[in-house]
């Protein structure tokens, strides 16, 4: 499924970008010459690679999609903040990596992650954005 999406999606994106670049090259060739050359070559190599590609089975599972959606959503919400979003991701990771989840292990990971965040805060003087639950 993902292979078929990539077979259309990637050339389409590249075609759109090449179109944008080519239309602007007329007004300012110095700024858009290099990107146009690169995009056209990308398009050619992309066709070459997709034509020769065989069906690959990497034992992929689709759970990355919900995880990625949750992750991006958490980092987009200002009231959740970077600290809680990081901890949430750590919890998701723990659930995925240790099939038989144990409360003590989960707690251990949360404490470990929090300690690492504090380390960053102290060593690199990281300050978190106003409005996050960290503050």
């Amino acid at each position: 499924m993902s292979k078929h999406v990539s077979k259309f999606l990637l050339p389409t994106i590249l075609l759109v970008l090449t179109g944008v670049s080519v239309t602007r090259i007329v007004n300012d060739w110095q700024a858009f010459l290099f990107p146009t050359i690169v995009l056209v070559l990308m398009l050619l190599t992309c066709f070459g690679w997709l034509n020769n590609s065989e069906t690959e089975n990497n034992g992929e599972s689709l759970r990355l999609i919900p995880v990625a959606v949750i992750l991006f959503y958490c980092f987009l919400l200002p009231f959740i903040g970077i600290w809680l979003a990081t901890i949430l991701f750590v919890v998701i990771l723990q659930v995925i990596l240790d099939r038989r989840i144990k409360g003590i292990k989960l707690g251990g990971s949360i404490i470990f992650a929090s300690l690492l965040i504090i380390l960053f805060e102290r060593v690199l003087a990281v300050t978190f954005p106003v409005g996050s639950l960290w503050i």
């Binding site: 990081t86 750590v90 723990q94 990596l97 240790d98 960053f120 954005p129």
Partner: peptide, 25 residues
């Protein structure tokens, strides 16, 4: 070591490391 511990370390370092660069989400 439990895999989750290693990957927690990598995750936190990745998120905090990129944030620490210029304090921007």
């Amino acid at each position: 070591l439990p895999q989750s511990l290693i990957w927690t370390f990598i995750t936190v370092f990745s998120i905090m490391g990129s944030y620490a660069n210029s304090h921007r989400l």
